[in-house]
């Protein structure tokens, strides 16, 4: 069982994590993987596992668990997962059911490609791609991103971003900056 400090740390991190990261599964994980991951997650942070700890610790565990439940529910359903994945591309870490985000919704910042890339060489290429995108040079960005993916061959998120880039390119030249706005 994790200590109070460790749990608090985890709870803080959760605010910046996607559902995949909360459950610690790759973004291409199967339904069975997600289920097993949720079980492991629950064994870690379900408040009932903290009956021997003080109520404060169990309370922090419960807060983490509730975010896991949210993640699990969304990722377990094919439809909500697809919608979530779509939103995730725009940097929305939490899923909102049904309706499009209202006008007053806070603007969400998208992760840079450099942040998504994992290996050092991939990061270099990704940084280039980021700069090309910022400059509106989408084709150059595409080449840089492909290079990055060759370094980071198992990085599904990077591949998803490439797909998004292709979509943006086919939609015609748009002035993009690092802060992608959520598309309606």
């Amino acid at each position: 069982m994790a200590s109070l400090a460790a749990l608090k740390n985890r709870l803080e991190q959760i605010e910046e994590q996607s559902y995949y990261e909360i459950l610690r599964v790759p973004s291409g994980a199967s339904v069975e993987d997600i289920k097993a991951a949720f079980h492991d997650f629950a064994l870690d942070v379900h408040p009932d596992r903290y009956v021997d700890a003080d109520p404060g610790t169990a309370g922090v565990a419960a807060e983490i668990f509730k975010r896991g439940v949210e993640s699990y529910k969304v990722l377990s359903n094919r439809k909500t997962r697809a919608a979530y994945d779509e939103g995730l591309l725009d940097g929305r870490l939490r899923y909102v059911e049904g309706r499009p985000a209202p006008a007053a919704a806070p603007v969400v910042r998208t992760m840079t490609l450099e942040e998504i890339a994992m290996r050092p060489r991939a990061k270099q290429h990704a940084l280039k791609a980021d700069r090309f995108i910022a400059a509106g040079r989408l084709d150059d960005a595409r080449i840089a991103l492909v290079n990055a993916i060759q370094e980071d061959f198992d990085n599904d998120d990077l591949k998803e971003r490439l797909n998004k880039l292709y979509r943006d390119m086919s939609a015609g030249p748009i002035a993009l900056d690092l802060d992608y706005r959520p598309r309606r």
């Binding site: 605010e15 995949y20 990261e21 790759p26 973004s27 942040e115 998504i116 198992d154 990085n155």
Partner: peptide, 13 residues
């Protein structure tokens, strides 16, 4: 290894 790393990501709004 497949978990996307976003540790450096600036805190999303």
């Amino acid at each position: 290894g497949k978990i996307p790393l976003v540790k450096q990501a600036a805190p999303a709004a």
